[in-house]
Design a protein around this nucleic acid. Structure first.
Lengths: 220, 220, 220, 220
DNA sequence: AATGAATGAGCTTTCATTCAT
DNA sequence: CATGAATGAAAGCTCATTCAT
């Protein structure tokens, strides 16, 4: 599995590069915006600060994004729309082909994949989580998207494990509601709420989480 | 156990009533502030809005709280400092006396107690969670407090259950790091991120969560 | 010459004591106001600060003085109206009786008397000078007053010295315009503009000033 | 010697014109600020008033000067830093070349030069004097500056006159402390404290002052 | 396309003053 | 008389947005 394509920021920007003539400035604007939003939050970051940090004139930001709100969307939406489902698929292709994978292996792969992914996109993850809490419209849009793009893959995995008797015969939605928040909260604690990551290797961390989830879900 | 004393907002205000002569206006200010902060966040709420919604002059807010930041603290701190530990003790006194309680019973009681508590203080819980994400100094202060006031009670419960062979012989900190985020994330999803609560009775909800936790933690 | 009656502040307050029933609070208010005005200026001192420093309620200040401006006047006017001319007379009675005094002796006595006087009323002197610069109506009122009350005494002294050939035959107004600003500017520099007074004894300082004035005025 | 370059305000602004692209608005802001500060003092002038009087938006003032305090500094500092020493040199070049000048001629030239100068910059002189009384940090900075830039020229003049026996053999600091306040106080009375200037020609006024100073200083 | 000066509405905060107790 | 909570106008300042160049 290559790491090089996992940094959403780069992806987003390289995609932008294809669609517009001059994106050097836009790249700089987005980089600065992400860094500042992550550090101080959207509401506490001024456009003049973004302009200064990215070395462009304030007017340039508005020429490209129209409003400050649009800039936030330009930061967040590509992360959600373009990259998130693509990654889900990746995890899947990593595990599924063998078809011998236990549910435990799937969860471990998912956890480790996301861990690395969020670590590499820590700043943008921070922005998304922070604004997610504030903006209902963002949550709604995201959930719709997740349902459409990811749930399919997850259902495949759950059904497969059910077939092997590794999971109780409960609706997938029910199972996901128990598992997902748990894994996600670990990432939020680690990348948003904590000052710095613990020294424990990812694999050790994964072991505990995975055991907990697998045991927890087995006979509920 | 009476629920009537569980609404932190009322508690906070009735306590204030004891120490100050006139709190009618302060109550109105705090009510309005909590409602607005919960809805739109601290940074997006103006003091003039708070003044309008509470029917006082804007100056009155500053006469009582000095700064907008202090108003936030006046909303949040009593919730954390005075009510949180008191509640922890309550849960404890509800379960412990019997000493026959299984670990499962303890988790269920904790979950149901918190569920009711956060439901009754939904708005202020929203404010706390939202600002918690933004303010590191708030997180630090809270964690210090939680460690000092609550961890003692939790350790008692864990040690007791370990003695009965219901929990693996792992450091309490390790166990808590697995259990706590899980329960808490369920509350955040339910009271902060969701538009409205599901119709399922609390007890049904509790069953799933408790089984998951108890099975999950057993043999990790 | 007694020093004890020279502190205008005390005088003012004891006079006030005669005319009003309870002046304990007024005294405290005036004391605090003078100290604060002297330190930070009238415009930068708030009535709440005066209230705090004098240990009264803010309302009490307004009950007595109506407006903040009136409080300033209550501080300044007695200093000017009641005390200034009285002092002028004192200087005069100290010197004149002998009738052998040279002009030099008169100027020296005047200088030393004012020096001590302003030193003892340093704070209120500061307030007056600072506000004097800002308020034309204050200057006008003071000048009118000075002309009415003091110029008579000064004319006596000048005429007497002219009679003895110590002064050129010029209008008194002309002579005063040359002499007065000089002496006064020395006081302003010393008590308003300087951080602290020099160590030189007053008499030494007086010698230089007096020689300068006497020589300067002699043959102009 | 041309008088046309003596208006510090114009100088300051023309210098600013060199370093910035658009100074039209800044000029208007500074003009309005000076006029208002001179009339009502710094503390009693609001930025909205300055904005209205200069025909710009209030935000424009803050875009250029950041704070109201900085605006005051932008008004005062160039007056002190750039123009004051330059003028001192001018007076000097006007008198010194001949080397036959008497001390009296020097003082007369200084007095007349400053008189014209302050008259042409009456408003800004008012601002400086008024704020000088309030702000110790301004006094300290100015004195440091004066000492560095002007005292050298004055020492030359005094030493030269001492060599010709026109001045007593006293430290220059001592002599300056006697002479300077005298001349300066005349300007303050005339341009700051008086409603309007007297009709007497400058030369007549100068005669009296100069005689007073020269006689006064001669044998002290 | 890019700029950056200019804007003005809106922000938090201060403060002299009022008034019910 | 004295109080101090309440007021609201006005202060200094910020900032997203516009627009002439």
């Amino acid at each position: 599995m290559e790491m090089s394509t996992h940094n959403i920021l780069d992806q987003m920007l390289s995609e932008a590069k294809l669609s517009k003539k001059d994106t050097a400035k836009q790249q700089r604007i987005l980089h600065a915006a992400i860094a500042l939003f992550a550090e101080k939050g959207f509401a506490n970051t001024s456009t003049s600060e973004i302009a200064k940090n990215s070395g462009v004139a304030e007017g340039t930001i508005f020429r490209h994004y129209g409003t400050k709100e649009n800039l936030l969307i330009a930061v967040i939406v590509p992360f959600l729309k373009q990259s998130l489902p693509m990654m889900a698929k990746e995890v899947f292709e990593e595990i599924n082909p063998s078809k011998h994978a236990r549910f435990e292996d799937f969860i471990r792969a998912l956890f480790l994949n996301r861990m690395r992914f969020f670590r590499e996109n820590k700043d943008i993850f921070r922005v998304v989580v922070k604004e997610f809490v504030y903006r209902e419209e963002l949550r709604t849009e995201l959930l719709t998207h997740v349902n459409k793009e990811i749930v399919g893959y997850l259902n495949q995995a759950l059904d497969y494990s059910k077939g092997k008797g590794e999971l109780p015969d409960r609706p997938n939605g029910y199972l996901l509601k128990l598992i997902f928040p748990y894994i996600f909260s670990q990432f939020v604690i680690r990348f948003v709420l904590s000052a710095k990551e613990p020294d424990v290797p990812d694999e050790v961390e994964a072991d505990a989480i995975v055991k907990f989830v697998v045991n927890g879900i087995r006979s509920c």
